[in-house]
């Protein structure tokens, strides 16, 4: 089949000035709203070519890569920015978890504020490590945090910890 011949690339020619950063962020936001993560990465790169340490652009790029399932790329990007004062510790821990580097992921969470996102990830790591009793304890801490469907994981941890008899009571008090 012949390739489409009338496709015009929309990239600006090099003689034009670079687009303003706020225009790029407007485009970036639109891609994010539409879940166009590959495009979002490209626009974030455009911002970074103008402002190499822009925290929002860096965060957008990392998150877009994760959402696009490019965990390896996200992790190497996080490594490349490790000298900047931008806290990407949670994202790093999550990527390590996805790569099944569970001890490293757990280590990465150490010393962080134990907010609900940290606790959720910690519980998931403990579950995979087979430390089901510790996992149950973490979900108990999350019991009042109103996280949607967290009780599903709580039940899983109870069952895996051999505490299936507690499931009914636990769900009633969730």
């Amino acid at each position: 089949m012949a390739p489409k011949s009338k496709e015009k690339p929309k990239t600006p020619t090099s003689s034009q000035p670079p687009p303003a950063i706020e225009d790029l962020f407007t485009t970036l936001d639109r891609h994010i709203q539409r879940s166009e993560y590959e495009q979002a990465v490209k626009v974030a790169d455009q911002v970074l070519s103008i402002a190499p340490a822009d925290e929002d652009a860096i965060r957008c790029k990392v998150v877009a890569l994760v959402k696009d399932d490019k965990i390896d790329d996200a992790l190497s990007l996080i490594h490349s920015f490790h000298k900047l004062p931008i806290d990407l510790g949670f994202q790093k821990a999550y990527c390590l978890y996805r790569q099944n580097k569970l001890d490293e992921a757990f280590e990465c969470l150490r010393g962080r504020e134990r907010d609900s996102e940290t606790l959720l990830l910690e519980a998931q790591i403990l579950y995979r490590l087979g430390k089901t009793d510790a996992c149950v304890d973490v979900y108990r801490k999350l019991q009042n945090s109103q996280i949607e469907t967290a009780e599903v994981n709580f039940v899983a941890s109870l069952v895996s910890a051999g505490k299936a008899s507690q499931v009914k009571g636990a769900l009633e008090s969730w």
Binding site: I21, F25, D29, V63, V66, Y94, A150, N153
Partner: peptide
């Protein structure tokens, strides 16, 4: 095997870009 959901995934969120976008200039 019990079901385990990846709830930490939902915590990976984009920053709010409201302040960084073009506004009020006849877009």
């Amino acid at each position: 095997n019990p079901i385990v959901l990846d709830l930490a995934y939902n915590c990976i969120e984009f920053p709010v870009l409201e302040e960084r976008m073009k506004k009020g200039r006849g877009g």
